[in-house]
């Protein structure tokens, strides 16, 4: 539409008073302040506290990992789009979001090729193969991460950071969830909340995730129903475990603030493409993720379950959409 306008501009100037009339369908106004691109930029803005915290704790390791993932994701997007003969769509910023989230969810010390492979898989298999942005069934970043998690299980277990040259002692330790799972050592809640612990760069600081996440929910870029569902179920299941007195000194709040729970709840599970459309569906989706996270944490060999929980619920999204068609007005 705007192209026509620009083409017609000279003509308009020559004949001076003749306006250029176009036709179109209703509605003739649109809300310009909220576009797909703006949504993606919102996510990048919301990630700032998380990025800042991860750089503060992991320093160059975090910077390097994020840079590798960001660049590879953008390059992969460009390459795949060219292969499919589609118009270049880097400007929607969605590949940048995938890159940063992937960079934040891989261990900072993982070798460069892990980040590269994860990024190519995320964009290629996670997104483009399904038909590009909007068509993918699974969260692209989690597809990439799951791939390297299985392919490079050794380097992905984020416990081997002893040689890290960083100002904070915490980095030389096992991740809080690993320490608890393997040795029964509990980490203090304050450390978990502010993020002075080991882990993937994005997940350590609960505070940073909350700040960014609340911004996303206020902007309605992320639907609050999803994190609400996750957190509610984690609180209920963790609370029940506390009451039953099973898990010693690892309380419900430890569950909430540790691992990638809040990062996943606000930044990964809220990916609009791979989550349901309706408010009810979104809440069920979140609750399901919360349930599987707790089941995996309690019963599986893995210390953490956010990634698998998200991927599993992604697979259920089409079903949830079908089950939660809202009752129309007057029905």
């Amino acid at each position: 539409m705007s192209d026509t306008t620009q083409q017609n501009q000279p003509l308009q100037d020559e004949s001076s008073e003749v306006p250029v009339i176009q036709v179109g369908h209703s509605p003739h106004l649109s809300n310009e302040s909220f576009t797909t691109r703006r949504m993606m930029i919102d996510v990048l803005i919301a990630l700032l506290p998380v990025v800042g915290m991860s750089v503060y704790i992991f320093q160059m390791y975090a910077v390097k990992q994020m840079a590798i993932c960001l660049v590879t994701c953008l390059a992969a997007e460009a390459a795949f789009i060219k292969m499919r003969n589609r118009s270049f769509s880097l400007t929607d910023c969605s590949a940048a979001v995938t890159g940063i989230i992937l960079g934040l969810s891989l261990p900072a010390t993982a070798p460069w090729y892990v980040g590269v492979i994860a990024s190519v898989v995320a964009i290629g298999i996670g997104k483009v193969i399904f038909g590009g942005l909007g068509m993918n069934l699974f969260n692209p970043a989690m597809v990439g991460r799951a791939f390297v998690m299985i392919a490079f299980a050794g380097v992905m277990a984020a416990s081997g950071y002893e040689s890290l040259n960083t100002g904070i002692d915490a980095i030389t330790q096992a991740t809080p969830l690993n320490a608890f799972k393997q040795m029964g050592i509990s980490t203090s809640l304050t450390d978990l909340f502010f993020g002075l612990t080991n882990g993937s760069p994005g997940e350590t600081s609960a505070l940073a995730c909350l700040i960014g996440g609340i911004y996303l929910c206020i902007r309605r870029t992320a639907s609050w129903e999803i994190p609400a569902g996750i957190i509610a179920v984690v609180l209920i299941m963790g609370g029940l475990a506390d009451i039953m007195g099973s898990a010693s000194n690892w309380t419900v709040l430890h569950h909430l603030f540790s691992g990638s729970l809040l990062f996943g709840a606000f930044f990964i599970a809220t990916d609009p493409v791979s989550s349901p459309l309706t408010a009810k569906g979104k809440f069920i989706f979140g609750a399901g993720i919360g349930f599987f996270i707790m089941v995996l944490r309690f019963f599986s060999g893995y210390p953490e379950g956010v990634m698998f929980a998200v991927l599993f619920m992604n697979a259920l999204t089409p079903l949830l959409n079908r089950w939660t068609i809202p009752a129309a007005m007057g029905e």
């Binding site: 539409m1 310009e32 949504m39 969605s94 309706t278």
Partner: peptide
């Protein structure tokens, strides 16, 4: 022209705003 300016059509990201 200002009133009817629209962003270029992009893919649906299923954000659910319409819902």
């Amino acid at each position: 022209h200002d009133d009817i300016r629209k962003e270029k059509e992009t893919a649906c990201v299923r954000c659910g705003r319409c819902v």
